[in-house]
């Protein structure tokens, strides 16, 4: 029976290693997922896009609506300086947003864009955007920030309006890029 017990302990050890490795694997999925997104180009919403073709399709108009949101307790005012613009696909357009820090402390924020309808995100190319970097505002500071974009000519014909919506999140001191 000693052999039996030793054999069992050996199996126990092997299986514990598998369990511990799988716990690590769960965490390894995080960089793996980010790498996949980077390679396949999914989810690169806060990186500058490249525009291959700027042929302007003058026959077609697309309305771009601008929206702004603040996540929970961020003590800022955040608004687009125009509610909408009408553009041709392929036409380089620049619009501005304004942020103001209403609090008595220095606050850093990060904006995350999203698109409605969702499918439009693939055809909305941002060349310059305040969402590419974190924004730090001193108490009372006001900043106007540009967004330069081109709508790709490949935009499906049934999409006539795109809503560009930004949400500003507060970046806390301890909370910098821990997720990778």
């Amino acid at each position: 029976m000693v052999n039996q017990a030793q054999l069992n302990l050996l199996t126990l050890r092997k299986l514990l290693i598998v369990a511990a490795a799988m716990f690590g694997f769960g965490y390894a999925l995080v960089p793996f997922y980010q790498k996949i997104c980077e390679v396949t180009g999914v989810n690169n919403v806060i990186k500058a896009d490249e525009v291959a073709n700027t042929q302007i399709d003058v026959a077609r108009f697309v309305t771009i609506e601008f929206d702004s949101n603040l996540r929970s307790h961020l003590p800022w005012t955040f608004r687009p300086l125009q509610t909408n613009v009408r553009v041709h696909p392929g036409e380089l357009t620049t619009v501005s947003y304004e942020i103001r820090n209403n609090s008595a402390r220095t606050v850093t924020g990060q904006a995350i864009p999203s698109y409605g309808p969702q499918v439009a995100g693939r055809y909305f190319r941002k060349l310059d955007c305040f969402c590419f970097t974190q924004q730090t505002l001193q108490p009372g500071e006001v900043r106007q920030m540009p967004v330069a974009f081109v709508v790709d000519q490949g935009l499906p014909g049934d999409v006539n309006t795109i809503t560009l919506s930004y949400t500003f999140f507060e970046v806390e001191g301890t909370a910098k890029q821990a997720g990778g």
Binding site: G26, V30, N43, G109, Q110, V171, A178, G179
Partner: peptide, 24 residues
């Protein structure tokens, strides 16, 4: 504890949670 695995503002992604959760 201030990590940002699933918090978009800190460079995380809520969709990542779904991938990990459903892998389980």
């Amino acid at each position: 504890f201030g990590t940002n695995f699933f918090n978009a503002a800190g460079g995380g992604d809520p969709v990542l949670f779904q991938h990990i959760f459903w892998f389980f």
